[in-house]
Structures are given as C-alpha cells and as structure tokens.
Design a protein around this nucleic acid. Sequence first.
DNA 1: CGGGTTATTGAGGGGCGTCAACAACCGTGG
DNA 2: CCACGGTTGTTGACGCCCCTCAATAACCCG
Lengths: 231, 231
Amino acid sequence: MEKQTMSCITCSIRHCSILKNCRHEFLELIDQTKYYMKFTKGHQLIREGSAADGVFVITSGVVKTHVKGYRKRPFILHLATTGGLLGYQRNEQKKHQVSATAAEDTHVCFIENKEFDLILQKNVGVREDLTREFNKELSKIHMRTVRLAQMSVREKVADAVLLISHAYGMNNSTKPFTVNLSREDIGDLIGCTKEQVSKNFSDFKSEKVITASGKQLQIVNYKKLKEIAGV
Amino acid sequence: MEKQTMSCITCSIRHCSILKNCRHEFLELIDQTKYYMKFTKGHQLIREGSAADGVFVITSGVVKTHVKGYRKRPFILHLATTGGLLGYQRNEQKKHQVSATAAEDTHVCFIENKEFDLILQKNVGVREDLTREFNKELSKIHMRTVRLAQMSVREKVADAVLLISHAYGMNNSTKPFTVNLSREDIGDLIGCTKEQVSKNFSDFKSEKVITASGKQLQIVNYKKLKEIAGV
DNA sequence: CGGGTTATTGAGGGGCGTCAACAACCGTGG
DNA sequence: CCACGGTTGTTGACGCCCCTCAATAACCCG
C-alpha cells in the first residue's frame, strides 16, 4: 500500500470512473487522501461481513466479486474491471455484503468513507452518476438472474465465456487471451460444476467455437458462441 | 384513475414507504399532484420498454415485477407489496426496464417525475433512503440470484413458497391464505416448469409441510419448509 | 524431478423438462 | 339449473441433461 504519485486530474481512467463528474477541487482532495494499492492475483480486497471503511476504484486489472452462497458454496456475482467501483454495497451496519478478490494483478485507488461521502454530498453530478450506476447494475443483475434461472448449462457456459471475454476487454476480438480463472471459478460464475465447464469447453472446441489450452482462451467464432448463448 | 381524497400526511403507509423522511411541505405538494389508482388483479401497471412518466407507491395489494426472459419466456423478479416503490428502474432513454402486473387487487399512488425529482432534489432524507433502498434491493437480488443458480428445483419451490408467504404478509402464520398466482407463475418465479411446481407441491403435501387446494395455500410446518429451502 | 493442484474424460444414476392424458375449475350462455 | 368450452392443475411415462464419483492426464511450484 502506497500513496499515489499520479494525480487524479490526469488519471487515464478518470473519465470512465464514478468520478468523471467530480469537481476539480474535490479531485484535489482525493489526490491528497487516497491510497494507491496493488493486489496480486488471488488476493482478497474485501471480505464479506467486514467493516466498510471506504470504496475502491479499479485503475487496472480484473476483480471477481463473490458471496458465500447456498451451502457455503461460493458464487461469483461479477467480474469488475477498469473504472469499476467496489465496496459501496453495504448493509445497515456498514458491513460489506460482497467479497472481492483480484482475478488478475490489480491496481486500485482506495477512498475513505469520509472523503467519498463528502464528495457525494457536494457533487450533484457524482451523486446522480452513482444512482445511475446502481440502476444499471440492478438491470444487469436482473438480466443475469433471468439467464441463470432459465438457461441450460451449455447455454450458461457459452454466456460465461462471453462475460469473461467482455471483462477482459476483448470486444469481439478473436485474439487469444490469458484468463486466471479456474474451471471451478467459471462454474461458480454460473452455478454448475467444474466438470460441466470442462465438458462444454471440449464441445465448443470440437465445434470450432473456441480454442482453449491452460489459461489461454480464444474465441474463434463469436457469432456461433452468441447463438449458443441465445444472445 | 381518480384523485386521492386521503392525505399523504395521514396515510397509513407513509412511514413504511419511500416518503417516510419527506418534509411536510413536499408531502402537501404530492397530495395535490398525485393520482390514486386502483388496479384489479391481472392488470398491467408498467410495460417493459414504455416511457417512464413517474413512479408508483403501493398502498395495498401485491404486484409482480417481471421481464421477458430468455427465449421470450417470462420471469418474475419480485413480488412487491404495501409500501413498495415501482417504476424507478429505468434505462438511459427513460424507458421502464421491468414490467409490473397486479397479482391481487392493488391500490397505488402515482407520482409524476417532475414532483418526484423535485423531492429527491430537496429532501436529503428521501434521497438517502432511496440509495439505501437500492442497496437493499441489490443485496436481495444478489441472494436470489445465487439461490436460483445453485439450488435444486425442490429447494427452489420451497423457497418460492416462503417468498410468496412473505409477500402475502403471513409472517410465520400457519393460517391458510389466498394466492392468485398460477403454478406457471410460481414456475416463472424460479425458472422451472409448472409441472415441477405441481409435483413438488404434492410432495410437500404428503410430507405435511403445506396444504394447498385451488388458490388456497397454507404453510403447516415452517421449520421443515425452511429446512428444505436450506434457510 | 516429484507432489499438489487443476483439467479432462467416462460411467452411472437421478433430477427435471417435455409430452400427453385426464381431472378440476371457471365464467358464459342456453 | 345444467351444459360447455377453455383455462388451469395433477399425474405418469420417457428420455436427456447434469451432478457425483473416480481414474487419468496435464500443469505448476518448489
């Protein structure tokens, strides 16, 4: 954990983060008080049930947000990435509701509650953006819920591959990319077993939709993959 | 659709609605501008994709919120009830994201955007409550997502029965109550077929957990039902 | 190189979706 | 009042999907 040297004002992700409409003077406040932190993959940023002292803004990397699910089995709710806000979802006792773990090496800025609350109070724009953000997130999780409830495992695996490719910034690129998610992680993303993920990956390979070996994943045929996922 | 005669200030649900922290002067504004409406069961209050002109506060009844899901199959996201807010979830184009249909005869107050936005702007308390509300809703849908993704159909049916009994205000009461939801609706609540709902109801009956005939539903053994649902 | 984790593949069986037949219930009109 | 057609609920047969378990292979780290 170290103080950030770079300024918020010149930060490359400023315009895709929750602070895009933050007034200049408050960005300077954050500059002075924030912590710039690095988490190597596998490290947990947030633990479900712990006290929420502030929020994280992801400047680079991929973070999986997850909860202890049914019969203690983990479930991955979301893959957050550059510009994403973590740790704002809390219960009445100001405890985190959702865990967050770095899926890739990740850089974040940590803003303490005191400053973040002040900004929300004094910046209508940021507040509105946050509400919009909640609205969007609600819609997304709704759609995800429906898909999880209604689709077959094959369809869900295809969906997960698309979700992952999106989180890893491959917009429809057919280039191979490295994913540090185990088959079990992918299963926990859709509520199925690691074996089913493996089997469906094999199927997709023989159908020439993807190639995959080890951590390398490549989507060869987006059109077909989307067809399988019913998108 | 008719003007409300009763005042917001003396409204019985005022303290359990989103307006519990609304300042007096603004309640009077709503009083003058709101519409009091009645919807008989089966009638649709909100249609997914339509323009969002305002919000609804449920004063009595039960409303199912639903979306067109995977391959056009409906999915019921939530059973909203007295005090609930409907229609605030919108996309960038101010279109409703979620449909709402009365599951029972329902009374609502309709507040137009202009007034509701003004209240949000001028009442810190209401704004904070709304954020809290979003937070809570997000948590709830997260938990629901996990359960839908990880549980078996038997478990999900048990869960649905508990969800319904909660929506119908039976807190752990073993009295019979009338539910105007078809078996198919219940299936759409958890993403399974009506036949599976029927079969599991039969199982629960022979296990002496519930009794059900027609629209009448009765939870005989909450403890066992909760065990089945893994709560 | 070896031990531990992770991935792949197969066998087996049960859960659940599909289809179909039938029963029960409903509002309508004779 | 019954008759009736339409909707909804119940139950069973059937077959596939997917979970579980297990064996083997591939990978990764010291």
